[in-house]
Amino acid sequence: MSEVQDYSSRLSDPASRKFETFSYLPEMTPEQMRKQVEYIVKKGWNPAIEHTEPEHAFDHYWYMWKLPMFGETDVDRILSEAEACHKANPNHHVRLIGYDNYTQSQGTAMVIYRGPISV
């Protein structure tokens, strides 16, 4: 059996905190973000965008950027909304969510833009 790597994420160290899908990986490139949005659309999930200050990522609800994009299948439109949220809130984390109507839950959630971490 292979050795499992320990990710030392601590509340006392804001730079070490991990959250959401892919948070242990480097930031996504635009091409990787596009692939994730394409996956959400292919699954028939409803995309939504949320944002929050990095210091509140764990202890507050995230702010919704507009309403979820019910039925939206245009990948470029979804990406442009995420970018607009990031530009309007450059110091916030921005999260992309895919809501699954069938299970009435989040099919996926990932931070696609990370705000600066103040230590």
Rank of each mutant, 00 (worst) to 15 (best):
P116S: 08
Q106G: 09
L96K: 01
H86P: 00
P47L: 03
E27V: 11
Y24D: 14
T29E: 09
G115Q: 06
V37W: 03
E31L: 13
P90M: 08
E72R: 04
T108A: 07
M110I: 13
G115I: 04
T29D: 10
A84G: 00
D100A: 00
E38K: 08
S105M: 10
K42E: 15
V119R: 12
I49H: 06
Y113K: 05
R17M: 12
H86F: 07
T21N: 15
D59M: 04
G98L: 00
L67Y: 07
S80M: 12
Y24N: 14
V119A: 15
R114M: 06
S105F: 08
H93N: 13
S12F: 05
P90L: 02
T29Q: 07
P90C: 09
N91Q: 13
E3C: 08
H56A: 15
R95C: 01
A57P: 00
Y63G: 09
M1L: 14
S9E: 11
N46I: 07
G71V: 07
V94R: 04
R114H: 13
G71Y: 07
A15M: 08
E38I: 00
P47H: 05
S80F: 08
R34S: 05
A15V: 06
L11Q: 11
H56Q: 15
S12Y: 00
H86E: 11
D59V: 06
Q104S: 14
P14A: 07
P30D: 13
V75R: 00
P14S: 07
D76W: 07
F58G: 09
T103Q: 13
I78S: 01
Y7F: 14
R114F: 05
P116N: 09
M1I: 14
N46V: 10
E72I: 03
M1E: 10
R34K: 15
P116R: 00
R34G: 05
S105A: 14
P116K: 02
R10Q: 12
R114G: 05
L67K: 11
Y113N: 02
Q5G: 10
P116L: 02
K18G: 12
C85Y: 04
Q106F: 13
M64L: 11
S80Q: 13
G107R: 02
Y24M: 13
P47C: 05
S16K: 06
Q104W: 11
H92N: 10
G98S: 06
H51E: 06
N46G: 08
A82L: 09
W45F: 09
E83W: 03
W65N: 05
V94A: 00
W45D: 02
L11Y: 11
L25P: 04
Y7L: 12
M69V: 09
K18W: 06
F22D: 09
C85F: 01
Y39K: 15
I78P: 02
R10L: 13
G115T: 03
